[in-house]
């Protein structure tokens, strides 16, 4: 039950993008088309899941026994950077068009604060290994959900009559704000 609560909370209630405003960069950058938004979401989910697992292992097996907690930040960044490299190689191998579409945002996952926040949060909240992984999957799916919704809205927006001054990033930020308000509605779901 605890696991389900963590999972649902990560996706809906404490959605990284819409509640904590983390990972806004790819959220706005790659949300012009649903296809690339899905891929970006899945890439982030993958990186988050593996990061959650690996950073837990490093934290609990290496850093805490050696009393090197203060190295958490550096070692988590190491984990994230390596994983992003891996994902980048993988995507480039299996789908060059997707690699082109994701562009600069793919290596930028490295500096995506959402993933770093995930690793730090899992350690702060003292999650067990399983909880960490569930937390990672949930957060990744939450990001994916948010970016896909955003892309769907923005695809419709292309056809809409948007005032000149608000075209592009302006209307996108307004949409993101309204989505964040809507997601606040989930906040009472799990106590």
């Amino acid at each position: 039950m605890e696991l389900v609560a963590i999972f649902v909370t990560a996706i809906l209630i404490n959605n990284f993008v819409l509640r904590y405003f983390l990972g806004i960069c790819p959220f706005l950058g790659v949300s012009k088309k649903i296809d690339s938004a899905i891929s970006m979401g899945l890439a982030v989910t993958f990186v988050m899941t593996i990061t959650a697992a690996v950073s837990w292992v490093i934290n609990h097996w290496i850093l805490i026994p050696l009393k090197l907690d203060y190295l958490q930040i550096v070692s988590f960044i190491l984990v994230i950077a390596s994983l992003v490299q891996l994902v980048e190689m993988f995507i480039r191998k299996i789908s060059p068009p997707l690699y082109e579409a994701l562009g600069i945002y793919l290596p930028l996952i490295t500096t995506n604060c959402a993933i770093f926040f995930l690793a730090l949060m899992a350690s702060l909240r003292d999650y067990s290994f399983l909880e960490s992984v569930i937390f990672g999957v949930g957060s990744g799916l939450g990001f994916t959900l948010a970016i896909i919704l955003m892309a769907a809205i923005r695809e419709q927006l292309d056809l809409a009559d948007v005032p000149e001054a608000l075209k592009g990033a302006g209307i996108a930020l307004i949409v993101a704000g309204i989505m964040a308000l809507a997601f606040l509605g989930f906040s009472g779901m799990i106590k």
């Binding site: 290496i62 050696l66 190491l78 490299q85 190689m89």
Partner: peptide
């Protein structure tokens, strides 16, 4: 010393993993 060794070992480990992945996944 411990912190240097730990970070060095972690860095080595990950870079080793990346080298292997690069061999397999190189385009």
């Amino acid at each position: 010393l411990w912190s240097v060794i730990t970070m060095g070992a972690l860095g080595f480990l990950f870079s080793f993993g990346l080298v292997i992945a690069y061999r397999k996944l190189r385009v």
